[in-house]
Design a protein around this nucleic acid. Structure first.
Lengths: 143, 143
DNA sequence: GGTGATTAAATTGTATAAAATTAAATTGTA
DNA sequence: TACAATTTAATTTTATACAATTTAATCACC
């Protein structure tokens, strides 16, 4: 049957364009993120920190869909760069509290232009962006 | 202004759900791919090989949005696993020709069920899948 | 109060990814 | 035909990612 064979063709995958598109978009960020010395993963972590100021690794990981295997080494680098500090919670020493520093706060101003620059770079209509956002969140929620 | 601050909130990003969703979907594949001994990247490479039988690294990379830095070591592993063979083109020795082997062809049968299993796993309506596919390809093309 | 189960991070091992550089082969052209 | 420019892979370096394991702290329950 053709159906079986077609199901294994790259063009018929739903996951592949998702994978490729995510990769390419992250790559588009690189020149802008380079200017402020962040990687994409560090950038999304900083977004959470700009908003919440303090958060333990587990909660940060839930927001970013990342685990300690990825976050532990990255947060150490970000601490070394002076953007965050890492301290154990006094109430429960299992929790590592990540806190934004003055320097980390200061970076927000320099990051402010990035969303607009990326928007100009991708050129998607607001309607399509909204539709895409909705579809992706529906899939994420359902998993 | 609230607009500036909002632009740097994780929930307002279009890229983040794309990144997170792609990652989570690839992760969903893992148990099924483990059964046939492939990683996700190897799986999409095999899809191209099942269809085209022979292809040089550059063409394969264009299809997969990957470069030789990723493909070279991966293709060596796949050759070691007996799924493909790697030979230099006689006409132009710069080109490395990747060819599917008997064993590689044989794996297609065992992979045949994976698309259906993943479909059951993600539960998205055909309309939404079509819409998502269209949106993602539009973005990819435009980049 | 002791102890087995649970939880949170860190660590270890494996596999991508991308940028930059290198090496080898081919092409274009003076 | 030399030889500079280009092209194709491979290599090197850095940074994720994730699964599995380990370690340390806390909790539950007797």
């Amino acid at each position: 049957m053709a159906a079986d064979a077609d199901a294994l063709r790259l063009e018929n995958q739903i996951c592949f364009p998702l994978y490729a598109c995510a990769k390419e978009v992250v790559r588009k960020y690189k020149p802008y993120l380079d200017e402020i010395g962040l990687t994409y993963t560090q950038y999304i972590a900083m977004m959470v920190m700009w908003e919440h100021k303090k958060m333990n690794v587990k909660a940060l990981g839930e927001k970013l869909y990342l685990d300690s295997g990825t976050l532990s080494p990255m947060l150490k680098k970000m601490e070394a760069a002076g953007l965050i500090s890492r301290t154990r919670s006094a109430e429960d020493e299992r929790n590592l509290i990540v806190s934004i520093t003055e320097k980390g706060e200061g970076l927000k101003g320099r990051a402010a232009e990035i969303p607009a620059k990326m928007g100009a770079c991708i050129s998607i209509t607001p309607e399509d962006a909204m539709a895409l956002h909705g579809l992706l969140h529906r899939i994420l929620r359902q998993m």
